[in-house]
Amino acid sequence: MNIQAYIESGILEEYVLGTVSPQEKQEVECMSHIYPEIKEELLRTENALEEYALKHQTPPPASLKESIFARLEFDSEIETNHETNSAQAAGTQEEIRLNDGVEHVRPVNTDNGKVIADVFERPEVETREVTPIWAKIAVAAAILLAVFAGWSAMQMSEYRRGNEQLAAELGSLKGEVAGMKSSLAYSEALAGMYRDPSYKVVKLAGMPKSPESAVAAFWNQQTNEVMLDVQNLPAPPAGKQYQLWTIVDNKPVDVGVLDNEFSGKVLRMKNTKPGAVAFAITLEKEGGVPSPTMEEMYVMGKVS
């Protein structure tokens, strides 16, 4: 198994972000147990995500607690002592009319029986509805829970956005790393051929059709292998493709068509015949032709 290719596939980042399917999740966990390199990369990715989340986390606003408790209005303790009404009149009096026609008032003897003044009148007592303290605590808890639930939802949304941003950054970083590896391999391949004495370097300069064009051909005179480094060539139009030729015994020999994605690559062409005296590139119809179109020659170089 190509462990490096598996790591660079992006499945470890998706596993950490929780976007993989159950089958892929099981696969990553199994592979991390089998291959220490995958486990190490997985831990590195998890640590990077955790550091990013901690770095960008948002603490609750300092005024959150005060704003919650400010909304709660607790009453003072329930008043339990009430004033009692007088059970008896301070002095119960009875009007007595004497024979002289003058009304006299005397106290009523209440020893044998109590006389209750205003027996049919009941004083109006102010009533007040008192909310139990546990009910207020329950309301406070509900409000607090609702506020924190909203705050948690906001945090989760920001956390997800952070994850998406981190995934994008990881993807961009992975692309940059891949590009650097490709560029490094390209440079190493060129340096190796320039240092290898078995390769003959042939410089192909631009022709009047395209004076700014430049190509380097590397011809292994022992194996007749041909490699190309396209330094500057216009992008071929649709339906067209560049074709390489060598001149052997005054006749053009087809060495193959160039890949249209030739920039930054060392192209491996077909082997040529021994005794090549020159190399040239023409623009032909896609797939190549048996004989070169001389009017469409872009570059040419002689073997020195």
Score class of each variant (00 low, 15 high):
residue 303 V to A: 08
residue 118 D to Q: 12
residue 136 K to E: 08
residue 6 Y to V: 00
residue 89 A to F: 03
residue 59 P to R: 05
residue 117 A to F: 00
residue 7 I to T: 04
residue 7 I to V: 13
residue 275 G to T: 12
residue 222 Q to G: 11
residue 26 Q to G: 06
residue 104 H to D: 01
residue 160 R to Y: 00
residue 225 E to L: 13
residue 59 P to K: 07
residue 171 G to F: 03
residue 35 Y to C: 10
residue 1 M to D: 02
residue 118 D to G: 14
residue 95 E to G: 03
residue 267 L to N: 04
residue 96 I to M: 06
residue 214 A to M: 13
residue 281 I to E: 09
residue 138 A to S: 05
residue 87 A to W: 02
residue 106 R to C: 12
residue 35 Y to G: 01
residue 45 T to S: 08
residue 271 N to V: 07
residue 40 E to A: 13
residue 131 T to P: 02
residue 232 N to Q: 10
residue 60 P to M: 02
residue 10 G to T: 07
residue 130 V to I: 13
residue 96 I to S: 06
residue 239 G to H: 13
residue 226 V to N: 03
residue 242 Y to S: 10
residue 56 H to R: 10
residue 9 S to Y: 06
residue 188 E to N: 08
residue 1 M to A: 10
residue 143 I to P: 00
residue 22 P to S: 07
residue 288 G to H: 07
residue 191 A to R: 14
residue 69 F to R: 05
residue 242 Y to M: 09
residue 35 Y to S: 15
residue 147 V to C: 03
residue 199 Y to C: 08
residue 241 Q to T: 09
residue 262 F to T: 05
residue 52 Y to C: 01
residue 286 E to T: 12
residue 47 N to M: 12
residue 44 R to C: 07
residue 254 D to I: 10
residue 203 K to T: 15
residue 129 E to C: 03
residue 255 V to E: 09
residue 229 D to E: 14
residue 187 S to C: 04
residue 37 E to F: 00
residue 197 P to C: 00
residue 217 A to P: 00
residue 134 W to K: 05
residue 33 H to Y: 12
residue 139 V to L: 10
residue 186 Y to T: 00
residue 180 M to P: 01
residue 176 E to L: 13
residue 11 I to K: 11
residue 104 H to K: 04
residue 26 Q to R: 14
residue 217 A to I: 05
residue 141 A to W: 02
residue 179 G to C: 00
residue 292 P to D: 04
residue 98 L to Y: 04
residue 105 V to D: 01
residue 27 E to Y: 15
residue 263 S to M: 09
residue 59 P to F: 06
residue 69 F to P: 00
residue 252 P to M: 09
residue 193 M to Q: 11
residue 91 G to S: 14
residue 64 L to M: 15
residue 220 N to C: 09
residue 298 Y to E: 06
residue 220 N to R: 08
residue 281 I to F: 01
residue 301 G to D: 06
residue 273 K to N: 07
residue 23 Q to M: 06
residue 220 N to V: 06
residue 42 L to P: 04
residue 177 V to T: 11
residue 99 N to H: 07
residue 71 R to M: 13
residue 95 E to Y: 02
residue 155 Q to A: 15
residue 118 D to P: 00
residue 220 N to T: 09
residue 198 S to V: 05
residue 58 T to P: 02
residue 191 A to Y: 15
residue 162 G to K: 01
residue 38 I to Q: 09
residue 18 G to P: 08
residue 226 V to D: 04
residue 223 T to W: 10
residue 167 A to Q: 12
residue 148 F to R: 03
residue 41 E to L: 02
residue 166 L to Q: 08
residue 257 V to L: 07
residue 122 R to K: 11
residue 147 V to E: 08
residue 45 T to E: 11
residue 74 F to L: 12
residue 207 M to H: 05
residue 170 L to R: 15
residue 18 G to D: 07
residue 268 R to G: 04
residue 184 L to D: 12
residue 115 V to M: 03
residue 193 M to D: 09
residue 67 S to L: 14
residue 174 K to G: 13
residue 201 V to Q: 13
residue 2 N to A: 11
residue 260 N to E: 15
residue 48 A to D: 13
residue 33 H to I: 06
residue 100 D to F: 01
residue 50 E to L: 09
residue 299 V to Q: 05
residue 115 V to Y: 13
residue 287 G to E: 04
residue 162 G to C: 01
